[in-house]
């Protein structure tokens, strides 16, 4: 995976300005929901509950109208999913003491699914939360403004940086640089003409940004106002309550219901 692909993947996380019922939910409520899913995903290691968890979020993606972006992210995580699956199979085979290959595969699949569920819930959060609003919610949760500003600015500059990287690569290739030529060490050296302008420009850009910020009264008042204030409404509380109910049900299931594994079902 090259540097540029990495930036493109990050670009996939970029918020797109559409409006939907999910977009309108307060990020703090959404955050509670993500945490709830996180908790449930960690709680279970069987395939059936994880599958239910995975499928139950698909309607949310559709309501939020971010299907295309979401699919792209899931596709982007397949490489890591495959890695997790392979690692699980190998380690369980050698150290696991599992009765059969089928159960090893099932368990590894469950672990992989857990990873995908985590990616899924995170991506729903980021795809439906404007970084501005997210920054604002961090601010209202008491996190220092400097940090929130750094966060939103970083996000704001991802597309700019991706474009700049592309331009620099083009400029050097136009002068005969062949990135894919030579042995391992040579290939790494090939990236020097790209990295140096990238760093120099990043420094120059940050100085210009700092200058512009200073010129617009950065740091003038200890008590900074924000044009917007987040207010939790009825819908948001509903969302939090649903999240808590999900947690409670899962704990109940975990304690009192024995979940069969696929291998067991197949044997019946």
């Amino acid at each position: 995976m090259s540097m540029l692909d990495g930036l493109r993947l990050l670009d996939g996380l970029r918020f797109r300005n559409i409006s939907s019922p999910i977009h309108k939910i307060d990020p703090r409520a959404k955050f509670v929901y993500v945490c709830a899913l996180f908790f449930v995903a960690i709680l279970f290691n069987q395939i059936i509950p994880l599958l239910i968890l995975f499928l139950s979020q698909v309607p949310l993606v559709i309501i939020a109208r971010v299907k295309k972006e979401w699919l792209r992210l899931i596709r982007g995580s397949i490489f890591f999913a495959a890695l997790i699956f392979a690692m699980n199979v190998i380690s369980l085979y050698f150290y696991g003491g599992y009765p059969s290959l089928a159960s090893i595969i099932e368990h590894s699949l469950a672990m992989t699914l857990r990873f995908i569920v985590l990616v899924e819930s995170f991506s729903i959060f980021f795809l439906t939360t404007s970084p501005d609003i997210f920054g604002l919610s961090l601010e209202q949760m008491g996190i220092p403004y400097e940090f929130c500003f750094a966060f939103t600015t970083a996000i704001r500059f991802v597309p700019v940086l991706a474009e700049e990287t592309q331009t620099i690569m083009d400029a050097q290739r136009a002068r005969g640089l062949e990135l894919e030529s030579g042995g391992f060490i040579k290939r790494i050296r090939n990236y020097i003409p790209i990295l140096i302008p990238l760093i120099v420009n990043a420094i120059r850009r940050s100085l210009e940004l700092a200058e512009a910020m200073e010129s617009r009264a950065w740091g003038a008042s200890k008590k900074r106002t924000n044009l917007y204030a987040l207010k939790m409404g009825g819908k948001d509380y509903c969302f939090i309550i649903i999240s808590i109910i999900i947690i409670l049900i899962s704990i109940y299931v975990w304690l009192f219901i024995k979940i069969p594994s696929i291998t067991q079902i197949m044997q019946l």
């Binding site: 939103t152 512009a212 009264a217 008042s221 106002t225």
Partner: peptide, 22 residues
């Protein structure tokens, strides 16, 4: 490109005033 920081035009225009704590 290097003097606009926010993710909406409106927030950018508000930036200085927010800093002043109005």
């Amino acid at each position: 490109e290097n003097q606009l920081f926010a993710l909406t035009v409106e927030k950018d225009v508000a930036f200085g005033l927010e800093n002043l704590g109005l």
